[in-house]
Deep mutational scan, measured.
Amino acid sequence: RKEMTAACTPRRRIINLTSVLSLQEEINEQGHEVLREMLHNHSFVGCVNPQWALAQHQTKLYLLNTTKLSEELFYQILIYDFANFGVLRLSEPAPLFDLAMLALDSPESGWTEEDGPKEGLAEYIVEFLKKKAEMLADYFSLEIDEEGNLIGLPLLIDNYVPPLEGLPIFILRLATEVNWDEEKECFESLSKECAMFYSIRKQYISEESTLSGQQSEVPGSIPNSWKWTVEHIVYKALRSHILPPKHFTEDGNILQLANLPDLYKVFERC
């Protein structure tokens, strides 16, 4: 597991931080080997919608929660590849102030007048994250320049770009939802926020969305749709870069829909 690298990086740093090793061990302890084997050997059937997909393993048909699986995938990559990410360069710098204002204007932020003026909160978020810029760049390849612009994001899987519609809320939550006081809790909560931002979430995906850094293989055609990215990038990574937690067998994120021999018997009677 320590050699797990989802995106190509030129050289690998050895990380011996106790906090990170502890988080890696927790993933191992909570892992479910049968689910790992199923995901490793599954045959992708198709997307139901951005949140759900169908896959077959041996004779069984499964309904998989793409949102939760991708979130767990990105969390584990962030923990196992800690401080070893490439950088996704933004085509132009994104001012943190503008991103924070967009987030505060969104109902998702939960902002009320009692929280104070949005401009003041946005300025605080910019200054707060600028103070964390060195650590964010060093460990997470999340790059913020001296003017308070976001200029780079971590490359977690080759050819995958997170849904940038979720970027404003991500920046807001970096400042408000991460435990910045304790090292282990900081790395864990920061990785979880980043994983949620990178995950496939239906509120940020339309039929026209593209999450891939590449064009489709047909010359002159439109960019790959999110469905292509889910199948050929995300579920491909799920084959080798995730140890599913045991609770996925109990919380409805992986559901067995049918045993195909039983279905064949039904059709034979028709």
Rank of each mutant, 00 (worst) to 15 (best):
L129C: 05
L39N: 08
P168Y: 12
H247R: 06
F82P: 10
F128N: 01
T59S: 15
Q58H: 12
K236E: 13
K227A: 07
R1H: 11
K236T: 11
K118D: 10
F97V: 03
F267W: 14
Y62K: 02
W228R: 11
K184Y: 12
E71Q: 04
D158G: 07
C186G: 02
T5D: 12
L102Y: 12
R201S: 13
L104D: 00
M38L: 07
A237F: 12
C186V: 02
P50C: 04
E165P: 03
Q30I: 08
I151L: 08
K192R: 09
T249L: 09
T5S: 11
S106H: 08
K2F: 14
N224W: 10
L90P: 07
W226C: 06
K60M: 12
R239T: 13
V48Q: 12
T5Y: 14
E29Y: 14
P10I: 13
S22Y: 13
G46V: 03
E143M: 11
L142K: 01
L243K: 07
G31F: 13
E72I: 07
P50V: 11
T210K: 08
I144N: 01
T9L: 05
T112D: 08
P244K: 03
Q203D: 12
R36D: 14
F170Y: 03
R239K: 08
F97I: 03
Q30W: 15
F170R: 00
P154L: 00
L142N: 01
F267V: 07
Q56D: 12
N224S: 11
D105F: 09
Y264S: 03
G31E: 13
D105P: 01
I77C: 14
P245L: 14
K130W: 15
I233C: 10
Y204L: 10
P219S: 09
D262K: 12
L121N: 01
K236V: 13
L102F: 11
S106R: 02
N179Q: 05
G148S: 04
G148D: 10
N65I: 00
E114D: 09
G110I: 01
E217S: 06
V20W: 14
A53D: 00
E114Y: 15
F170H: 02
L243H: 08
C8L: 11
F187R: 11
I200G: 08
M101K: 04
E193R: 03
K265L: 13
E185T: 03
E71M: 06
V34P: 08
S216Q: 07
K2I: 14
L99I: 13
I205F: 07
N41S: 05
K131Y: 14
P154T: 00
V234W: 01
P117F: 15
P95C: 04
A100I: 02
G46N: 03
F248P: 10
I233R: 10
R12K: 07
A83I: 02
L260N: 07
Y160H: 05
G166S: 11
I125T: 13
I157S: 06
F82A: 02
S141Q: 12
Q51S: 04
T249P: 10
P244Y: 15
Q214T: 08
K192T: 11
P261T: 03
E147S: 06
T18Y: 15
Q58F: 14
I254M: 08
P50T: 07
E123H: 03
L211H: 08
V266Y: 15
L39V: 13
E231R: 14
N253S: 07
L121F: 02
R269E: 07
F187G: 01
T112E: 14
N159W: 13
H32A: 05
R11D: 14
